[in-house]
Design a protein around this nucleic acid. Structure first.
Lengths: 340, 340
DNA sequence: ATCTAGTCTGTGCACGTTCACAGAAAATCA
DNA sequence: TGATTTTCTGTGAACGTGCACAGACTAGAT
């Protein structure tokens, strides 16, 4: 019943050496592209490798070199949000591209629950990877602590304020939120609210701060609704509450596009026109933004560049090169459409 | 400039043995939960582990055991589709859950281009994982060939017809497509077309076959539009072409929700009402389905179960247990809403 | 012919485990 | 008590590689 009982013994460096009639030292040299090996030997070895179907045993190599040429990307998201978050995918691909250029392998680890957390901590300690990139970490994340403890080169995407010494790559959430709110105000809005999600994360808190910056002394804390997730459902609930508090509202900043989409549905249901009665802006420039009617004005995040940059930083750390500065901020741009 | 020059030497099993005043053999036994170790030794060793902060060096362990307790999930998707495909995320999470239960680690590998392909093949050969799950493989995929060649336990999600001997887990695309098309016909439609994507993949081809089954002798090949991707844009283009060929069309089967969403926009643009003038059904039950106006009737895939089942199969293979049958089909259900 | 520098190759050791074996100590039985 | 089984422990060998070292061979300069 076994599927592959007789899987043959893998060829080792010794088999290659015997086949090529040289010593394993010489084989090792051509494997690692070192100089000082004669053309005759090199060719014989290359033929032998081909013939016996040799591939390096990475476990053995890792053991002696203490490195793996692999980098972990750790995503900490509850299920529903992981599926909806438009940025995760782009970050993943950007990271993969950059690592691929340096011949590093991306290993993507997902934290679903606490079991995963401790298993992943073990994995990192086990020496499976040379470094780690942590996406959307929460404050006081046990994984972050584990990484700090074992001194694994690591970088955050987004900046959890509880890990002051670990480098991070992110966008200027505060500045971007301020800019798009200011732009919304320029359209002549006078009573502007915010649906603010995930205030326990850096991104959420910063976006709220930016909103407050833009409004300055016109800021009214009662017009900020705190919702748990960056989801459409949160947008629906948040908007209902906001209208309850201020039926004469004429502007909304939603801290994600999904939230904005839910909010727009509520505005329409209650007979308000967009952008006539109420102007609305979002954040992310995801799929949602173009699906809205009218298309949503929003902040475009360079998610793939975020991934690339994070990869570059962590590769630097692996080589012992500290990044130029602890934090790297990537520029955002405003995608101005018809919703405000 | 170096970040962590003085990273301390990791504690080894010898350090623990010395601290606990036993031999490394005994330490190894408690590490692996073997019987025949006295309570006194066990406690001393556990204290010592705690004290010196010992963690197993997995490279060393892998080297001797020839196993890693890690499974690769290989995703082969061009960028745009990866970001849009609603199923990938759920499959990922389902797989992660199941592996987590058996204390295996999920390692997620993304194939962007050919460079990635060969690097990942090397990775698999290098013995980093004990098995592999391949999602949305194309026919004649080089990775599939590599896996077959090295005899790595593997399972496909979806069934690429070029690998007849490798087990797979999937849904009955053909049956589901037939059922939902039949249901569409029951609403009294007489001229029904299809926007068919990814015919080079198993899923695409099977959905078309199911559509044909349902129409039987009413099937008209000129009403099938072949589009490249499961994307909204493809839906827009496909629908335009379909209307050009048959302006009096009254039903559409779109082979994904994203395609349906694009198609619905075109139908509305051209002044057709849904479901009055034209009934439309999709496939996937993704975000798109509920965002449509009216909400889309579609086929719900148990994507997370697909992931779980694939994980179970591959774990079985790793233990030398062949699956009950080569292919496992998971049931789908129809989510019937207002679009038809 | 001798010395020196450069090129090439083989060998021993280390990396940190697991596993098989052998032997000691304790417990059970005759 | 001695013989046997059971429980416990230590030791040597292996896993497959990279690296440092030493030595051999070649070529050029004196």
């Amino acid at each position: 019943m076994a599927h592959n009982v007789d899987r043959p013994r893998r060829a080792t460096i010794f088999d290659v050496a015997a086949e090529a009639k040289v010593s394993r030292g010489t084989v090792s040299r051509v494997l690692n592209g070192e100089p000082y090996v004669s053309d005759a030997s090199r060719e014989a070895i290359e033929r032998a490798i081909e013939k016996v179907g040799y591939v390096r045993n990475m476990a053995a190599r890792n053991l002696v070199t203490q490195s793996t040429r692999a980098i972990a990307l750790i995503v900490h998201e509850p299920h529903s949000v992981f599926l909806e978050d438009p940025n995760i995918g782009a970050i993943l691909l950007g990271t993969n591209d950059r690592l691929s250029e340096s011949d590093y392998q991306l290993v993507c680890l997902i934290i679903g629950g606490d079991r995963d957390s401790s298993r992943i901590a073990q994995y990192l300690r086990g020496g499976f990877v040379d470094g780690a990139i942590i996406v959307s970490a929460r404050e006081h994340d046990p994984i972050s602590a584990a990484i700090a403890q074992i001194g694994l080169p690591a970088v955050f995407v987004g900046h959890p304020s509880t890990e002051p010494d670990t480098p991070y790559v992110g966008i200027d959430n505060r500045g971007a939120a301020r800019d798009i709110t200011a732009r919304l105000l320029q359209t002549g809005r006078t009573k502007v609210g915010m649906i603010a999600a995930a205030l326990d994360r850096d991104s959420g808190a910063e976006r709220l701060a930016g909103f407050r910056d833009a409004l300055a002394d016109r800021f009214d804390p009662s017009l900020v609704i705190d919702v748990p997730l960056y989801s459409r459902t949160s947008g629906v609930e948040g908007m209902r509450e906001l209208l309850r508090r201020a039926p004469d509202l004429d502007g909304v900043f939603a801290s994600s596009d999904a939230i904005a989409a839910g909010a727009m549905d509520v505005l329409r249901e209650t007979g308000r026109s967009i952008p006539g009665d109420v102007g609305i802006v979002g954040f992310d420039d995801s799929d949602w933004a173009l699906r809205c009617q009218p298309p949503l004005s929003t902040v475009r995040q360079p998610a793939d560049l975020l991934g690339r940059e994070a990869a570059s930083v962590v590769l630097g750390l692996v080589d012992g090169v500290a990044p130029a500065s602890l934090g790297t901020m990537l520029p955002t741009e405003i995608a101005w459409r018809d919703s405000a």
